Simulated assay, not measured.
Amino acid sequence: MRKNIRLLLIVGLMVIFATALTYFDSFLYHDPVVRVTNVKNLSKNTSKDQYKNTDTQITQRVSGKLLNSKNKGKTISFHNTYYKSQLTDTKYKTGQQVILAHSGHSYSPQNIKRDTSLVFTFGLVIFLLFCMKFDRKKLFISVLINIVIFYGYMQSIIKTHNNALLLMTIITALLISATALLVILGPTYSALMAFSSTVVATTAAMLLSTFILGMTGYSGIHLELNDYELQPYLSVFLSQVIFSVLGVILDETMDISSSLIQMKKELSDVTDKTLFKSGINIGRELIGPLINILLFIVIAESLNVVLLYLSNGNSVGYTLNMTLSLGVTQLLISAIGIVLTVPVTSFIASKVITRRLN
């Protein structure tokens, strides 16, 4: 107990030290950095459009002391104009550190210096992970390896100019799944069961969904409305679906497989049919929460666009059709994968567990 408290204390002190270090690291920046000491509003103008949406434009005079450059310690000021909605601009407050652009004798704001808050947030996550008693080394290793894999995936997309996007997505998804399972579960039959179940369920869901969408001619699905209208539309859409459903199916297969393994260890005479039925029962309890999680993600990702459409006088039907069609389609494909995972994982796990543990 004392050892754990001592470890948590050391990690907490390291997080505090790293956060404090980034607060005073302005000397590492090439651009001037200023600490805001005074903010005064000079003007305020409110405008209203034809749909009765209102926004207010505010002009600030921001003063502060330079923290680096040859003029360190000098008090400077600059003007900043922002809208109350802060969609593409920023409101500056006293105490913030701001990165500036220097031209002649004048300064203009570029962005807020955010490294302190980022380091603190990342450190807080690490501290909370140390509070939980599990193998943190495996988590960090799997995350780092998957980051490297994803970096290679992006480099391959850049070199091929999206010509092999779907193929590279499939290969990346297989590598990420295999890496996560091998690092977390080790080279065991449990990892093999989870991997094979994930591949079979995901493949079946994608093929079935693509067939159904092809039969309908993608009616009502606006593939061209993906972010920034990236092409090829279908490959981009299917790549998004693969990555979105992969993590959920991995979690589901691991839950079912580990539960059946534990059941076999406690009841050595249990048959594969009983294991299969137990896996189905376990999966039924997982389907609802997992689909709801994906639904909340779709709503969260599309809420800002939905509000934008509605606030500009569009009807509810048109808004939902133009903003949620892709998200709902992804949700339906993911739901098919989640449902198919239950019998697939239950069947594979019941057969493998019965033979291996016997």
Results as ranks from 00 to 15, higher is better:
residue 5 I to N: 05
residue 7 L to S: 01
residue 8 L to W: 00
residue 11 V to C: 06
residue 15 V to S: 00
residue 22 T to E: 10
residue 29 Y to H: 13
residue 37 T to S: 14
residue 41 N to R: 10
residue 53 N to M: 07
residue 54 T to G: 01
residue 62 V to Q: 10
residue 65 K to L: 14
residue 71 N to P: 01
residue 72 K to Y: 01
residue 74 K to T: 15
residue 74 K to M: 13
residue 81 T to Q: 10
residue 82 Y to I: 12
residue 83 Y to N: 14
residue 83 Y to G: 06
residue 85 S to W: 02
residue 89 D to C: 03
residue 93 K to I: 00
residue 95 G to C: 09
residue 96 Q to C: 02
residue 97 Q to T: 12
residue 104 G to A: 05
residue 108 S to F: 04
residue 110 Q to R: 11
residue 111 N to K: 15
residue 111 N to C: 01
residue 113 K to H: 05
residue 115 D to N: 14
residue 118 L to P: 05
residue 131 C to V: 12
residue 131 C to L: 15
residue 134 F to P: 04
residue 134 F to Y: 14
residue 136 R to T: 04
residue 137 K to I: 12
residue 141 I to H: 00
residue 143 V to Q: 09
residue 145 I to V: 15
residue 148 V to Y: 04
residue 158 I to Y: 05
residue 158 I to W: 01
residue 168 M to S: 01
residue 172 T to L: 08
residue 172 T to V: 07
residue 176 I to S: 04
residue 187 P to F: 09
residue 192 L to N: 00
residue 195 F to I: 14
residue 196 S to A: 13
residue 201 A to R: 08
residue 203 T to W: 02
residue 207 L to T: 11
residue 209 S to H: 06
residue 214 G to S: 11
residue 214 G to K: 07
residue 216 T to E: 09
residue 217 G to I: 11
residue 217 G to T: 07
residue 226 N to K: 06
residue 233 Y to C: 05
residue 235 S to D: 15
residue 253 T to G: 10
residue 253 T to W: 05
residue 262 Q to R: 09
residue 262 Q to S: 13
residue 266 E to Y: 05
residue 285 E to H: 14
residue 286 L to N: 07
residue 296 F to M: 15
residue 303 L to I: 15
residue 311 S to E: 04
residue 311 S to R: 14
residue 312 N to F: 06
residue 312 N to I: 09
residue 322 M to G: 00
residue 328 V to E: 02
residue 349 A to G: 05
residue 353 I to L: 10
